[in-house]
Design a protein around this nucleic acid. Structure first.
Lengths: 199, 199
DNA sequence: GGCAAGATTGGTAGTAACTACCATATGGCC
DNA sequence: GGCCATATGGTAGTTACTACCAATCTTGCC
C-alpha cells in the first residue's frame, strides 16, 4: 500500500477522533462541521469528502462492526447450519463492538440526545437487517422463505440491540457473551409472550 | 370544539395533502418546503409550526397509526393476557394502516428513494418499540423482565414490518390479516432458524 | 532526477432546511 | 364593541450540504 492510502487513513482517523472529542465536550448539536474541520486542520470540503454527513462521523464505527460480520456470513458455505451461523454473527458483532466500549457508549449517548443521530442509527440497523434478510432468504428453502428470513433476521438484530442496550446501561453487569446467551435461551425456552395465533 | 380547532385541523390537512401531491409529482428531494407552503397558501413559518421537519409531513400518518394502537394497549387492564394483547396491537396497527393504503404505499416509496425519510421512519419504529417495551415490562414479573419485554416488543414490531412490507410489495396478494396470522404461526411453529444456545 | 497523469486538497458561491423573533390579524369571551 | 389569547406572516440569520475550480501533492515512467 502506498503513502497515499496511509495518509488517507490517517486524516480520516484524525477527523473522526476530533469529532468525537468535540461532540463529547459540547454535544452534537452545538458542534459545527466547520469546527471539526478546523480542529482536524483540514478544509470543510475535505471533511465532506470523507464523511458525507455529520451523522456519519458518529456512526461509522458501528456500521463497520455490523457489516464486517455480515461480510463474514456471506462468505460461509451454502450448507452452513443457520442457527449456528446466526449465533456466530451475533457473537462477531458483539465482539467487534466490545473492542471499543467507550465509543459505543458515546454513540448511544449522542443518539439519546439527538434525534437525527438516533434516526440514522435506526436506519443503519434497518439496512443491515434487510441485507441479512436477503442473504438468509438465499439459503432457505420451502414455503414462506421471505417471511422466515425476515423474522430470523429481525430476531437476530433484536438480540444484538437488546444486549448492547443492556450492556451500555450497566457497564459493570453481566458479560456481553452471557447476555447474548441469556437472550437466546429465553427465545428458545418459550418464556417470551409472543403474539398468539387465533383465527 | 370551537372554530379555532376546526380551522387548525383544516389547514393541517391541507398542508399535508398538498405536500403528498408535490412529493408524488416531483419527489421528496425536488420539493422545497416553500413550495409546499405556497401550494397550501400559508407562510413557511406557519407550516413549520404544524410540521417541525419536512419528514414529519410524510410520516405523521404512520406515526398516528402506531401510537393509537399503543394508547389502546396502555388502557387495557393489568391482568390482560399478553399474547392476546400483542396480537390485538398488531391487528389494530394493520387495521389503521389499511384505511389508507395509497398513503402507506407512498410512504414506503418515498422512504425507498430518500435516505432521510427512511431514517426518520426507522427512528419512529424504534421509538414505538421502546415505548411498547416499557409498557410490557410493567406488566411482566419474574426474571429477565427487561429482556423478555424487549424481545416480545421487537418480535411484535418485526411481524408488523414484515406484513406491511409484503403487503406493499404485492398489493393483490394475501389479505393483510392472513399475512399476520401466517407470520405468527411461523414463529409459534418453530420454523424460524433462531440463533441457538451453545456454551 | 524530472515529468506527465491522476488524485487530493482548499476555497468560493450557492441552496435549502430550520430557528428566533416581532408585528399583525383573527377567533373567543364579556 | 372591546379585551385577551392565539394563530399567522415576514425578516434575518445559522448551518448542513452541493457544485465547481484552481492549486498542490503522490505516483509511475523515462
Amino acid at each position: 500500500m502506498g503513502l497515499r492510502e496511509l495518509k488517507r487513513e490517517r486524516t480520516r482517523r484524525l477527523i473522526s477522533d476530533k469529532a468525537f472529542e468535540l461532540f463529547s465536550d459540547h454535544g452534537f448539536g452545538r458542534t459545527t462541521v466547520e469546527q471539526i474541520a478546523a480542529a482536524a486542520e483540514v478544509g470543510p470540503s475535505t471533511l465532506y469528502r470523507y464523511f458525507p454527513t455529520k451523522e456519519t462521523l458518529v456512526l461509522e464505527f458501528v456500521e463497520d462492526c455490523l457489516f464486517d460480520a455480515l461480510g463474514w456470513f456471506r462468505e460461509q458455505p451454502a450448507d452452513l447450519d443457520l442457527p449456528d451461523g446466526l449465533q456466530s454473527v451475533i457473537e462477531r458483532v458483539l465482539g467487534q463492538l466490545e473492542r471499543n466500549p467507550d465509543r459505543v457508549r458515546m454513540v448511544y449517548e449522542l443518539a439519546g440526545q439527538t434525534p437525527s443521530v438516533s434516526a440514522h442509527l435506526a436506519e443503519l440497523i434497518w439496512r443491515w437487517r434487510n441485507e441479512l434478510t436477503v442473504e438468509l432468504a438465499g439459503r432457505l428453502a420451502g414455503d414462506s422463505v421471505e417471511f422466515t428470513a425476515a423474522l430470523a433476521a429481525g430476531t437476530t438484530m433484536n438480540i444484538i440491540e437488546i444486549v448492547v442496550q443492556t450492556w451500555v446501561d450497566n457497564p459493570d453487569g453481566t458479560e456481553v457473551k452471557d447476555l447474548a446467551l441469556e437472550a437466546m435461551g429465553l427465545l428458545r425456552g418459550g418464556g417470551i409472550p409472543l403474539p398468539t395465533v387465533q383465527a
